[in-house]
Every structure is written in C-alpha cells, then in structure tokens.
Amino acid sequence: MAADIAGERRAPWVLLSPSLATVGLLLIIPMLFIVVYSFWLRTATGADQVGFYLDNWIEVLGDRFYRDILFQTFAIAFYTTVICAFIGYIPAYFVANTPMKSKAFLLLMLMLPFWISYIIRTMSWINILGTSGALNTLFLSIGIIDEPIQMLYNQTTVVLGLVHYLLPFMILNVYVSLDGIDKNLTEAAQSLGCTGWQAFREVTLPLSMPGLAAGSLLCFVLAAGTYITPIVLGGPRDAMFANLVFEAIVTQLNWPLGSALSLVLLALLGVLVVIYTRYLGVDQIAKSFK
C-alpha cells in the first residue's frame, strides 16, 4: 500500500523528468553560470579572475551610462510596440472578419516574412531608403527632390526596422483574440442602438485587449533585446542595451561585466513578464502559436 502511494507520488516526477532535465541543462545551469560569471573580474590580459567581487554590479547599477542606454532601449522598444499595436490592429481585424477561404491565404501571407532571414529583411531597408535606394530614385525621377534625402542610419530607421520585424507577432496575437470573439455580441450591441464605431469601441476593442496586451509584451521584450537592427540601420550613437552586452563580451572580452549587464536586462524584462502574467496570464501568448 505504502509502495503504491510512493509510486503514485513519483509518477509525475518521472513523467516530467525529460522536460525538467532539458530545462535544467539548457536554461537553469547556463543561467547559473552567467550569475557566477557576473561576480568574477576581468584581468588586464582578458583572462577571468575567479572569486566573489561586486565590482561589476556596482558599475552596472551605479553608472549613469548604463541607465541612459537602458532608458533609450526601453524608449525604442516602447515606440516600436505602440506603432505595431496601431498598425497591426487593422490587418488583424481585417483577417479576423474575412470569409474562411481568404482567411487561410491571408494567414499564410502573414507568415511569409518568417521564411526570410531577419537580417536580410532588416538589410532590405538599405535598398529602399538609401541615397541610391528605391525611394530616392523614385522621388528624383519624378522631380519631387533635386538631390537624395538622407533617410538611413538614425533612430527612426531603427524603429522602422523593428516594426518590420515585429509586426507579424502583433498581428497574430490580436487576430487570435479577435477571432475568438462571438460575432453575435457585436450584432447584439448594434441591435440595441450602438453605431458600428460604438460597437467596436464598447465590445470588440475591450474583448480584444488580451491579444493586444500579449502582442505588446512580445513586441516590447523582443525589441528591447535586439542588437542587429541598430547595427545595420542605426547611426554611430544608436545603440541598444544588447549592443553593450555584445561589446562587453566580444569586443572587450569582459565576460563578467557582460554577464552582469545581461542579467540586468533579463531581470527588468522578467519583471514585465511577471506583471503581465499576474494580470493577464501567459495563455494568451500561447494561443497565437497554436
């Protein structure tokens, strides 16, 4: 009897063990390495000095430079998220309210950008916005401008590149939310005297908020962690926090400092996810990938 109970208690752990081992090996242990690294020091030769030093943490938390870049990173991520939300909602609404046949095709079109490398998609803007790019060539040929306009390599193009990259994530999340709304609710609102706009504002929009929030969270977290876009489309000053992590680890070979920086970014984005989960739950994000 006791053996049966013990066996029953063990069963979930046995069943969970492959997942737990995977998470442990691929996530927990590497994360612990990063935590340990953050307390080491980089020596003059680039080798690491093993020990328990708070220097990296004091530098990262006390230096205004890192705070400023972090603020700039979050500002760029915020602009990107807001733009994605505004321009992503419309196509999501359109897809959700399209007849079944077209819907499958439109969803396929939505997935199409994922088939092309993110770096290639980012670099495509150079051919569009460059001084010899498509837009300048068009404007020059129809006489709107006399000489090419400098459109590339600034914060605006960084945000543009991020919007291009993240928009499908927003659309998918909002679409899933809109698709789950019972159409009878809108019709009921209209039958009770609402105009089309009022029905959207009072019924559809509030019910689609979980999808909008899930899309926003995804866009914000992915945007805040990017480093390719500022390298390709940014100017000399347009760095994001991930670029500092890259520089600390790769250029300066300062893995301890890079570890502390990456943990700060991870912690702040983790707080966001926790807040989101507390109020909305992560189920909504999972739905869009089903």
Binding site: A44, F65, I69, P236, R237, A239, L244, T251, Q252, N254
Partner: peptide, 18 residues
C-alpha cells in the same frame, strides 16, 4: 595592450554620445 581595457570601454561610451 596596456591600454586596451580602459580605452575600449571608454570608446564604447564616447561612441554613444559621452
């Protein structure tokens, strides 16, 4: 090499507007 640690870090800041 003697100045690498200091200069590479300072350059990272100067590059970003400091």
């Amino acid at each position: 090499n003697e100045n690498e640690a200091d200069w590479s870090k300072t350059f990272s800041r100067v590059q970003r507007g400091y």
